[in-house]
Measured scan of single mutants.
Amino acid sequence: MISLIAALAVDRVIGMENAMPWNLPADLAWFKRNTLNKPVIMGRHTWESIGRPLPGRKNIILSSQPGTDDRVTWVKSVDEAIAACGDVPEIMVIGGGRVYEQFLPKAQKLYLTHIDAEVEGDTHFPDYEPDDWESVFSEFHDADAQNSHSYCFEILERR
């Protein structure tokens, strides 16, 4: 099963200049909980913004210009990325925008964090048809001392 995991502000903004323009430790914990011990696929820009392999996960970098870091697996196509994951129950696609666009048609599940923030962004989550998805989990949280904005975790499964 292919799943996408993303944090989205208003207007589906997911990033600005290779960074997330908010401070939500709870979302980072949600991300870790849902990706640990699963292969993660990301684009080169996302890889560069993280700066290191995510521990406890097979890191697969999709790029037309593969790098030389041998701590991760470099691939040039969506099919190659899927094959590099091996026989696993769930593959997690973690961004960025172009990689989400490439995998959305193949995805069966979306793990979304909806952030109540209007922020400037240069990267967006692809538009998706809500009628194609069923919400199977939703959990709202107010902003607090650690988390700069209110947010809602949601899991959607393709109908």
Rank of each mutant, 00 (worst) to 15 (best):
V93S: 04
H141N: 05
I94T: 03
S49R: 00
A117I: 10
T35G: 03
D127E: 11
K109G: 10
W47A: 14
R12C: 12
N37C: 03
H114W: 12
A143Q: 06
A145Y: 07
L28W: 00
D144S: 09
Q108C: 07
S150N: 03
D69I: 06
D116K: 15
E134V: 11
S49H: 07
I2R: 00
P89Q: 08
S3E: 03
E157H: 05
V88C: 07
A81I: 12
E157S: 10
P105M: 11
D87Y: 07
A107T: 13
A83F: 11
Y128F: 03
I5M: 00
R98S: 02
D144Y: 03
L156C: 02
P105N: 09
T73Y: 09
K109Q: 05
P39K: 10
W74H: 11
S64C: 13
P89F: 09
R33S: 11
A6F: 14
E118T: 14
F137P: 03
I82T: 09
S150G: 06
H124W: 02
G97S: 04
P53S: 09
E48I: 06
L28A: 01
I50G: 00
V119E: 15
L24E: 11
E90K: 02
V40E: 02
K109S: 09
E17R: 00
D116H: 15
R44T: 09
L8G: 02
A143W: 06
S64V: 09
V13F: 03
A26C: 01
P25V: 03
T68E: 11
T68P: 12
W133M: 10
A84P: 06
A83G: 07
L110N: 01
K32S: 05
D144H: 06
A7L: 00
P39I: 05
A9G: 06
E139L: 08
A84E: 04
P89H: 08
V136I: 10
M42A: 04
Y100P: 03
T46G: 02
G51N: 08
C152I: 13
R52L: 08
Y151S: 11
A6C: 11
D70W: 07
V10E: 07
K109N: 12
N37E: 11
I60H: 06
S150K: 08
G67T: 14
A29F: 03
Q146F: 11
W30S: 15
E48W: 15
L36P: 00
V13S: 04
V88A: 11
V119P: 08
G86Y: 06
A29C: 02
S77N: 10
D144L: 04
D127F: 14
V78G: 14
E154W: 15
D144R: 03
V75N: 05
E101T: 06
M20F: 02
E157V: 05
K76S: 05
G43E: 02
E134M: 10
S3M: 00
L8V: 02
I50A: 03
R33V: 07
K76N: 06
Q146H: 08
E154H: 14
N37G: 05
E154G: 14
V75Y: 06
D11Y: 01
H45M: 03
E118R: 15
E90H: 08
P39T: 15
Q146M: 08
R57G: 00
K76F: 12
R159C: 13
P21E: 00
N147D: 01
M92I: 15
I91E: 02
V93I: 06
A83K: 07
G56K: 07
I41F: 07
R158F: 05
I50M: 13
R33Q: 13
E17F: 01
A26P: 04
G56H: 07
N23A: 13
P66L: 08
I155Y: 06
S150V: 03
Q108H: 10
H124K: 13
G67A: 12
D11Q: 15
H141W: 06
D70V: 07
V99P: 01
S3G: 00
S63R: 06
D87K: 10
H114M: 15
V93L: 06
V75F: 07
A117M: 05
R98A: 09
T113G: 00
R12N: 14
E101D: 05
C85Q: 13
K109W: 12
D11L: 03
A9K: 00
K76D: 11
N147H: 04
M16N: 01
G86N: 09
P126G: 07
H45D: 03
N23L: 05
F31V: 04
H141Q: 05
S150C: 05
P53A: 10
V136M: 10
D127R: 15
T73D: 03
W30Y: 15
D69E: 08
E101L: 08
R98V: 01
A19E: 03
S138F: 03
L54T: 01
R33A: 10
P21Q: 03
F103S: 14
N37W: 09
N59Y: 03
A84H: 12
H149L: 00
D70Y: 08
D144Q: 05
W133F: 12
L112W: 07
R71L: 06
N37K: 12
E120F: 14
L156H: 12
K38A: 07
V136N: 10
V72P: 09
V78L: 04
V40L: 11
L28F: 12
M20N: 01
D144V: 05
Y128E: 05
A19K: 04
N23K: 00
E129R: 11
L112K: 03
D132S: 12
V136A: 12
G43S: 00
P55Q: 07
I115C: 09
I91K: 09
V99N: 09
Q102E: 12
G56V: 06
A84T: 10
A6T: 15
P89R: 07
E120H: 12
N34T: 04
D131K: 04
H149W: 00
R71V: 05
N59A: 12
R33K: 10
G86T: 13
C152E: 10
Q108P: 02
D79W: 05
K38Q: 02
D116Q: 15
Y128D: 04
G56S: 07
V75E: 07
L156Y: 15
I155L: 06
K58E: 05
Y100Q: 01
I115E: 03
L4T: 03
E134H: 10
L110S: 02
I41M: 04
Q146Y: 09
D132L: 11
Y111N: 03
A6S: 15
E48Q: 11
Q146G: 09
E90A: 06
R98P: 00
D127G: 13
V99C: 13
V99L: 12
S77G: 05
